[in-house]
Amino acid sequence: MKAGQRLSLLRFGTVMLVLLILLAVLCLLSIAVGSAGYSIPEILDAVFREEKSPIKTIVVNLRLPRIILAILIGASLAAAGALLQSVMRNPLADPGTIGVSAGAGTAATTILLLFPNLTASVPLFAFGGAALACVLIYTMAWKEGVDPTRIILSGVAINSVLGAYNSLLQLMNSDSLEGVLAFMNGSLSGRSWYQVRLLSVYAAVGLILAFLCIKSANALQLGDEMAKSLGVKVNGSRVLLSGVAAFLAASTVSVAGMIGFVGLVVPHIARILVGSDYKAMLPTSVVLGAVVLLAADTVGRTIVPGMEIPVGIVMAVCGGPFFLYLLRKRGKVSGN
């Protein structure tokens, strides 16, 4: 192995190691802190020795599933964003671009406000809405192939129509918006092992598919004509990568509502840390996404005692300024 190759491998290894340690520390912290704080020995004692105790109930039934969910969601959203940035060759691409958020939002709002008796099925409808909006955007953008600019523009158009419908619906039902707001701002509050089981299957499938897309994602970064002349089926790859990204993002939306910024910011940070090669960038995004979302959720549920700030809001509030910082200080946030 040559010196330079070893260097970039070393860099990737170091970054991954640091992120994994950070994730582990965050997990422990997140288990310990909350409206009731416990020390680690107390927790271990409760979980492994005692038959039944309030500590055990809180830790095992409330905090643990929530931590796992945060990890799965952060990882999935970051992976989805990373794939989409390659598909669109655009630094602003994120799951919102291809209609996942607006589609899920529309479906969820409709169910919550017009058919409240179906509230239990919101995740299912949200997933379906996300998929439908995504298909609609790609169908509209298709003209002898999918051109990134057309996807983005048709996404803007369809997102705005769906957004208007959502606003109208909310205006007409302004007295029963609690559920809608919770969905729109993405929250992990009150999620249980049921959601963990559901999402872990989706996330596992989606993430495996994402890792299988690494080569195509890299090739698309070279430009359409270059990729095509290297024997890559450009349109096919675009649709495949978008499909995987939509699947990942839609499954998180169906479980936790809309959480912005992870899919946008995390891939950029990963790019700064380990470079643009998806072999390093995708795994880094996945772990970093988990770290960021877990941190945001932990902050959200502990920063104001007795009140939960939805993780989506924490993400947006912290993510925005941090993104601006990167943009100005580092000058490194770039597409192609």
């Binding site: 330079g4 890299n218 970064q221 070279l222 270059m226 002349s229 024997g231 790019r271």
Partner: peptide, 24 residues
């Protein structure tokens, strides 16, 4: 084919970029 317009992420290493020619 070397198209008129091509681009690579600026941090791609020369050797890695050249390696993409092996994709076919």
């Amino acid at each position: 084919v070397l198209p008129q317009r091509h681009s690579a992420p600026p941090d791609f290493k020369v050797k890695d970029l050249v390696g993409y020619g092996r994709m076919p």
